[in-house]
Design a protein around this nucleic acid. Structure first.
Lengths: 339, 339
DNA sequence: TTGTAAGCGTTATCAT
DNA sequence: ATGATAACGCTTACAA
């Protein structure tokens, strides 16, 4: 890597002091017009670029946001894109670290980003995360932090997320409205908030509609398509066979669909199916899969906006929580009443 | 953000000089054993973390790699994961920027990362990129650079990629072997290398098998599922109807499959279908889609390894090129001879 | 074995 | 309007 032009070089060449150069470059008011011109011209010529490192060291600010996410699946990638868009606009660069759904890696990533002196954190916790010492460490250092998507309750940090309970409700309600009576739930990992909240919406809606809950119709499994297939096979060959499945993610729904077809059951006639996330692929499949839109891009943008706001104001935002309302997109997989 | 403990703090507290503290911390040989103990103990107690900024400024090295990619789809996300894994191991942190398939954003990202003083670049160019001034700028500054996946020809830079021509060959050959006579190509954007290479493999294989090429059976379209549907509809309702489609990406293949089903054609009996990328979803669909595995994770790892090698050695690697051989995974969508 | 001082590139304070 | 100097946190000759 070649040596970059520095303020010193310009100062030396122009036989003026570095402070004058610095002022001229930054359009400070008290610089001779001739001097300024000369400085700017030479800076241009030598392709001068201010050294961000020196600036950061001085200002104790790196203009960098550390993002920690469990993986880069469709939803998270979309959210990151939203964050990135807003962050860029505000002059921040993001450093994205994947925890790979591992608590250990999440800790390591936190430490690394802390060492890298990021100005703040935007985090979505892994499915393994049940202890929050790393989060508290960030808080203790008074470093700005926003949680998004998979947030933690009982902790005073600004959060941006979907109303997952409502998501569970509308999906379940829709299936009931379509005349399904025996609705199974393909839930995610058991200690994950988003998983439990969607389940809560499901349970609540069943009760409200006086439908008995059968524990055997609720299966928790990792966000993994193979598990979804096993779980679905279990459901459809068990004693109490469901006539509909609400899967907590589109991937799980697709896994379920595969097995349903394997067993020769028709969708939506014999089995109704609703997914979650509204991935583009749900529209392309046959049958297309009804799914709950979770506004990933918008959640990403809102998260970054809150972050930027925290950086620029002194107001305490620790109790701030933005909750997006989900929307159900009804497609073939669950639409058996009107076409 | 609270003030971090510095070497100065420790020196002051222990009434020794900062240089001694620095030496003790780094296990330099010429430090009194007592001094070292005391320093380390206090450092531990005060939770001392060396300031990376100061270090970077001094060493002119940030231990950061700038990654520029067109988007974060499955393949790229997997590649980034591979890069990240190797980079982390070697003590590097990655900064990922998405160009969003836009040449303009690719330029801006390059500039930003350059300003951020990344130690080097790992780039996969956007589908719009046809001018390479930004790449040359990086080269002129003698900053390490590795291209991957979507590389540029006629440029002396280490590259890691799939043998896309071979990918096109094996997919096409397989369809021919399965008895398909009239194979259409759903190609990607026209000026994209990977697109044209796969097409080249397709054309070559047709010729080798004495099959006439019908230009109307070759449709270029963006990596967008809607376009794929339009293109497929065009193909299947045109004069010369194909009996098989080789889609250059799984997403395009899925779009094609949707339309094929809509038209009531059976896969693989009436229409054979092969995709590219071997996304997990291809296995879950019905019928499951044959697809060319492109070893995204491995390509990512190999790319990072070359990068690290460049950083650590003086050998010229500019002509180095690692080419992965693709492998076809045969599934239901194209398997009509033996089950 | 330890301390002093210069330097990395920049800005801010205080003089002039 | 411009310059000198110190400072950000750290390392490294060079001295002692």
């Amino acid at each position: 890597m070649e040596r970059q032009t520095t303020i010193k070089d310009i100062a030396l060449a122009l036989r003026i002091s570095t402070s004058t150069v610095s002022r001229a470059l930054r359009d400070a008011p008290d610089v001779g017009i001739e001097t300024r011109k000369a400085v700017k011209a030479l800076a241009e010529e030598l392709d001068y670029q201010p050294n961000k490192l020196a600036l950061s060291l001085l200002k104790k600010q790196t203009n960098t946001i550390g993002i920690i996410i469990p993986n880069l699946d469709y939803v998270l990638a979309t959210m990151v894109k939203g964050i990135d868009e807003v962050a860029l606009e505000a002059g921040y660069t993001v450093m994205v670290c994947q925890s790979d759904e591992s608590f250990g890696r999440e800790m390591v990533n936190t430490k690394r980003l802390l060492d890298s002196l990021v100005d703040g954190f935007i985090i979505s916790v892994s499915s393994e995360t049940m202890v929050f010492d790393h989060i508290k460490k960030i808080q203790n250092k008074k470093i700005p932090l926003v949680l998004f998507d998979r947030v933690i309750n009982n902790i005073s940090v600004p959060k941006v997320r979907l109303d997952n309970v409502e998501g569970g409700r509308i999906a379940t309600k829709h299936l009931i409205d379509q005349g399904y009576k025996n609705i199974a739930l393909l839930a995610g990992p058991e200690n994950l908030n988003i998983s439990n909240e969607r389940k809560e919406g499901y349970l609540e809606t069943l009760k409200q509609n006086k439908i008995k809950v059968d524990k055997n119709l609720i299966i928790h499994c990792d966000f993994n398509q193979e598990y979804a297939k096993v779980a679905t096979r279990e459901l459809l060959t068990g004693k109490n066979k469901p006539d509909a499945i609400f899967a907590i993610s589109d991937r799980l729904a697709i896994g379920a669909m595969t097995v349903i077809k394997e067993l020769g059951l028709s969708i939506p006639k014999e089995i109704g199916l609703v997914g979650f996330n509204n991935e583009p692929i749900t529209q392309l499949l046959t049958p297309s899969i009804s799914s709950v839109e979770m506004y990933a891009f918008e959640i990403g943008k809102a998260t970054a906006k809150i972050f930027i706001e925290m950086m620029h104001s002194e107001v305490d935002m620790s109790e701030k929580e933005i909750v997006f309302k989900p929307k159900l997109f009804i497609r073939e997989s669950s639409n058996r009443i009107r076409k």
